[in-house]
């Protein structure tokens, strides 16, 4: 049994969506995918392709108009969120919007723990220290408020919160896109270690091809709500020459000023 299966999922947004003449806009069309335990699926696509919507559906936050999402064989839209919420966690793109500015970092990370586990105050404190150090911050940071952190530091707090309940699957929705390369390399390394230690599965939603390549075992490309490419191994992705992969490779920037193309 697969950890998670999406079967023929389609989704539309109602007339509150702008930028379309018709009242409804299809954002996902017959999307099927499978995630196994310990596997990272890199989901690439342009902004507006439907990547985040797919992530939200998978998290149980947005009921799709058609199709099913099975987590360990159970349709997540047929069960109570409490049954899977602990097992499927998420790290969002915008860390400032993902935390309550009135809570300290410690309270933010403690929230899923107090919701799902019964820990004594001492054990909770100990767990928080372990978590915050695991993501490269110090125990003194637990008492600080989100406004005291930079975007990169706050994203690490979001990652600590996501791994707090020992989930089986984490949806990483552009989780490293706003980090600088020092932190990005560190977080990717951390995510890789966590994946190996806990046999975690990731759905890695990103437009950052390098980051995707650093972590993913499989790749998919989403374009206008449809899966247009599935590459079951990193080699298959590297060697692919179809227009979608070429477009991604063309858009990459030079790594040295001598190779630059924008300013001559």
């Amino acid at each position: 049994m697969s950890l998670l299966r999406m079967e023929q999922v389609s989704h539309r947004y109602g007339k509150r969506r702008v930028l379309s003449r018709q009242a409804e806009r299809t954002v996902l069309q017959d999307v099927s995918l499978t995630l196994e335990t310990g596997m990272c699926l890199g989901l690439l696509g342009k902004s507006g392709a439907g990547k985040s919507t797919l992530g939200r559906i998978l998290l149980g936050l947005e009921r799709p108009k058609a199709g099913r999402v099975l987590f360990e064989g159970q349709d997540i839209y047929g069960t109570h969120p409490k049954d899977y919420r602990q097992d499927i966690q998420v790290v969002f793109q915008d860390s400032f919007a993902a935390v309550n500015p009135k809570l300290t970092a410690g309270q933010i990370i403690a929230e899923p723990l107090t919701n799902f586990t019964r820990l004594s105050p001492e054990a909770l404190e100990q767990k928080l220290i372990t978590l915050i150090e695991q993501v490269g911050l110090t125990r003194a940071d637990l008492a600080k408020y989100p406004s005291a952190f930079s975007g990169g530091q706050l994203q690490r707090i979001c990652i600590a919160r996501a791994i707090a309940t020992n989930p089986k699957l984490i949806v990483l929705d552009e989780a490293v896109s706003s980090l600088d390369m020092v932190n990005k390399a560190m977080i990717l390394k951390l995510l890789r270690e966590l994946k190996e230690t806990y046999d975690l599965a990731y759905l890695f939603i990103t437009h950052d091809v390098q980051a995707a390549q650093a972590l993913s075992d499989q790749f998919m490309i989403l374009e206008q709500g449809q899966i247009v490419g599935h590459y079951p191994t990193p080699q298959a992705f590297d060697q692919a020459t179809d227009p979608y992969v070429s477009a991604i490779k063309d858009a990459m920037l030079a790594t040295h000023p001598r190779k630059r193309t924008i300013r001559k």
Binding site: K46, S47, S178, H207, V209, A251, L253, I262, R263
Partner: peptide, 20 residues
């Protein structure tokens, strides 16, 4: 300040072209 950090790779290059 990090003008292209939130953009996907396709848009990133266009924005940089535009800044140039």
């Amino acid at each position: 300040d990090e003008p292209t950090t939130a953009l996907d790779v396709y848009n990133q290059k266009q924005v940089l072209y535009y800044l140039e």
